[in-house]
């Protein structure tokens, strides 16, 4: 027998660490989503120029600004000492992923806002004067192709940095074996890309401004603008599905890495392989969030079923539950 009893009873620490609540998964989800939107927008700016304004891409950066602000609000709500939040910006701590993150977050705003200005919406329900002003800025920008290119690069680079950072943030905590993996960065980036593609897809359906391609994310239309429409459909489908497939492969690598590491890492993996988080992880993340959307997309493409919003909604739910489980189960994993 090896039994440990302790008189420690600190709130949020015992019996199981619960320092972070709902705010962190919400922030990680929204951060990843915005990262994905930025990558798609950046790629579009660099490759597509202004010919593809008809696709729903123009909303991506604007939506990104709103979602990122919501995510940062969630992060702010999590702080126990809110009045001192400005302390983050009086220093740069190179060993702290959170310090990197707070500066990255500050730097992605100008890139997102610049991209939003580049392609203002055609109509807005109110604020016509503001729209006219933004249009004049947009014209000014379009006359400077170099600047547009810088904006594209800033969105692409900023999106990749933001997406990877949301994973590295957890991966850097050596004390929590479940998070102890370098692949969390790429995992969160690809999960962010798939959720961003899903969101753009939904947006295209709602606004009816998209191509109407079955389950293909309209955002990607810009990426593959050189393809003829019939061919484009297939490429978009493949690209969309590839985000999910890569995500699945990284999850497999992550679990394999844990299972082939030390005993504490194996115990951490057991939380998802028979432990308390098994059902939500395999049911909501793997099955409902990745495998079912992949299957539905395949069937839609093959013309077996009608195009619907279901795969995109499932991808968004799966992306959120992935972060939720990682934050909760990761805190429960420990060295002792």
């Amino acid at each position: 027998m090896d039994e440990i009893t302790s008189t420690r009873h600190n709130p949020g620490i015992d019996p199981v660490l619960h320092a972070w609540g709902w705010e962190i998964p919400v922030y990680l989800f929204l951060g990843g989503l915005v990262a994905g939107l930025m990558v798609l927008a950046g790629y579009h700016i660099l490759k597509a120029g202004r010919q593809q304004e008809k696709v729903s891409y123009p909303y991506a950066p604007m939506l990104g600004v709103i979602l990122l602000s919501l995510g940062m609000n969630a992060l702010f709500l999590d702080l126990a000492n809110k009045p001192l939040v400005w302390r983050l910006y009086l220093t740069f701590q190179p060993a702290s992923p959170m310090s990197w993150g707070s500066w990255i977050l500050l730097l992605v705003y100008p890139a997102l806002i610049g991209a939003a200005i580049l392609h203002p919406p055609e109509r807005v329900p109110f604020g016509q004067r503001l729209l006219a002003l933004v249009r004049s800025w947009s014209e000014w920008l379009h006359q400077r192709p170099r600047l547009v290119q810088v904006l594209g690069l800033a969105n692409l680079g900023g999106g990749i940095a933001l997406g990877i950072y949301t994973g590295i943030l957890l991966g850097a905590f050596g004390a929590r074996p479940l998070w102890n993996s370098a692949v969390l960065g790429p995992l969160f980036l690809f999960s962010g890309l798939s959720t961003a593609a899903a969101l753009m897809h939904l947006l295209a359906m709602v606004s009816r401004s998209g191509t109407g391609a079955p389950f293909a994310d309209v955002a990607l239309a810009g990426v593959f603008r050189l393809m003829d429409p019939a061919h484009c459909k297939h490429v978009m489908v493949r690209a969309d599905a590839s985000f999910l497939t890569i995500e699945l492969a990284i999850i497999a690598l992550w679990l394999l890495g844990l299972l082939t590491a030390t005993g504490v890492h194996q115990q951490a993996a057991a939380l998802l392989l028979g432990g308390p988080w098994t059902a939500p992880f395999w049911g909501l993340v793997i099955l409902a969030g990745i495998l079912v959307p992949l299957l539905l997309q395949f069937l839609e493409l093959a013309g077996r079923i009608r195009h619907s919003a279901v795969p995109a909604v499932l991808v968004l739910i799966g992306g959120f539950v992935l972060r939720w489980i990682l934050v909760e189960a990761g805190q429960a994993s420990r060295w002792s």
Binding site: A19, D78, A175
Partner: peptide, 27 residues
Amino acid sequence: KQKCIGCKACIASCPYDARFVHPQGHV
């Protein structure tokens, strides 16, 4: 405590769970 924003990163990083959030907000 004049610099601590209560982000709890240090709490998550301690393998001994030796830290806690003080009711005043700092760790």
